[in-house]
Design a protein around this nucleic acid. Sequence first.
DNA 1: ACTGGCACTCGACTGTACCGAGTGCCAGTC
DNA 2: GACTGGCACTCGGTACAGTCGAGTGCCAGT
Lengths: 340, 340
Amino acid sequence: MGLDDRKLAVLRAIVEDYVATQEPVGSKALVERHQLGVSPATVRNDMAVLEEEGYIRQPHTSAGRVPTDRGYRLFVDRLSRVKPLSPAERRAIERFLVGAVDLDDVVHRTVRLLAQLTRQVAVVQYPSLARSSVRHLELVPISTTRLMLVMIADTGRVEQRLVELPAPVPANDVTDLRRLVNEKLVGSRLSETPPLVQALVEESPPQLRPAMTTLSTVLLETLVERHEERLALAGTANLTRGGLLDFQGSLRPILEALEEEVVLLKLIGEAEPSTTRVLIGDENEVDNLRAASVVSTGYGPGATIVGGLGVLGPTRMDYPGTIATVRAVARYVGELLAQN
Amino acid sequence: MGLDDRKLAVLRAIVEDYVATQEPVGSKALVERHQLGVSPATVRNDMAVLEEEGYIRQPHTSAGRVPTDRGYRLFVDRLSRVKPLSPAERRAIERFLVGAVDLDDVVHRTVRLLAQLTRQVAVVQYPSLARSSVRHLELVPISTTRLMLVMIADTGRVEQRLVELPAPVPANDVTDLRRLVNEKLVGSRLSETPPLVQALVEESPPQLRPAMTTLSTVLLETLVERHEERLALAGTANLTRGGLLDFQGSLRPILEALEEEVVLLKLIGEAEPSTTRVLIGDENEVDNLRAASVVSTGYGPGATIVGGLGVLGPTRMDYPGTIATVRAVARYVGELLAQN
DNA sequence: ACTGGCACTCGACTGTACCGAGTGCCAGTC
DNA sequence: GACTGGCACTCGGTACAGTCGAGTGCCAGT
């Protein structure tokens, strides 16, 4: 495509100005604010080309130009450098995450921090069970026919579930059950447990069979199938910044999408190693979010990734800044998790 | 106050019409839609009195009347009867809550159900720890100097927390610790545990002292002080119904308030037995919610109350319907909890 | 290849006029 | 004395015309 350096510079200037002012930017204002070294007329010619190529558009015939989703995409891919974080931000992150006492706490602090720093809606996925290993399984007798199953994962997640036994099970049988499931399952990845659980039933001594069968059902259901992902959300109030200009006046679809766990997981859960993913407007597969952009990345102790986090905001967003913040927060959270 | 029956009927009609149409209601429309048996002129006189008394007001000089917060209050207190639920709603409630597998599940289903039925923002408080008793405490060794403390409450809540021991503790000491804390604490109300925990430290054998001291700190912190309340929220998208008319055009303050757990707890957490509380507009102590109304009630197995739930919406709300739904849902949840 | 100039477009804003829903008041009626 | 019909009045909403100005596209000139 015939986009020389100056045209790219013009595009960059348009994006930056529009993000800052939220108003269509015209050729005259552009040359004034950026040292482009050419006249407005020249810029106008460049703009005409950029518009033809679909990178910018005019809201009305006699208005300035506004970047299109495609324009933002080019900007993000080729025209922006990730901003280094300010020392203040760096300090904020550290201060915020120090003193977290458990996983819930870490996740909640993280999501609030992210919302505050980016001034957008933040989403943090709890460490995925699929990517966790069993650290310990505990069986707590509630009554003779009821057990509370508690699973502790290496990522710090703790899941529990009530087990209704088909018949009363004496205390030392519970001890045996506990020993058996732990021997078999501790250390293995959650995603790999199904065959092990199966084996567990088959190998268990006759008098434990019925109980073990029920237990295995619950195990499979809780640990693998249902519910396995959890999310935390913060900063929805930030959607109202920028008046009603962003999101074409209606928050409705956005709020709806934010209530759908499945949707959010799709957005931030598909984390590839160490990349930051940026989805701009239309690129989004969820219809409700066609007016929004999402910046997300994976996090985890060391190089492994156990979950995703990210932010959602208007397409008119400070991409370099947001990307930098999301990355930094993810890195800190990873370090924090590594300490456990 | 000189409000005869007809004036009250007029107020009721105004509230009902305004809630239904969302438009200021005039004298002529009123007599047409309700059988008041008098002429518009008479209604106008009544309206003048109602306005003088502060129950209704005119948005503009030549517009119809709109109820004030005070007017809604009178309506709720004296002019409305709780609507019986439709069979369809009744069925929806039952269907929705059947099949919940654990407390998390119950709470999430409930909050969604409530949001859906009332078409407003729903809030459900998890059973309050303060009102729960200890059913079991579990100590799971993670390493020689780390324990995972898991507390199971009679209300179904499960809380966990990592304990960093000052020195390695052998396995059978952990067993002893477990036995001691359970003997002492099981069955007692969380709010009454502090002196017991204190005693636990003092009575423990010397070699367990250091570990028990640390453990007690964590116990007190986790179970009594911090974090003790949890909430679930749903239906924020409903805030956008009714365009920008409700909430005087800005969702911002509302969304902000909804992110403050403390605020929400104050709203729905102060549950008195079996009453339904209605807070209308200004009656609300939270400034951000001056444009909203809250309908809340307590729930719990049998007659005891373990937590609160409710909905938040515009002052222009179908109070009778909302009150009925909130009550019904609370009752069903109570029954569900009683089964455990 | 760039620039200055110019005619043109069209949204935003302003002022005027008009319509109609709704009111308050008053004299008249049952 | 309570209610009603009638009437003058208010004022928000809408429609229309006119002006202003930012911004554009195009073209001739350097």
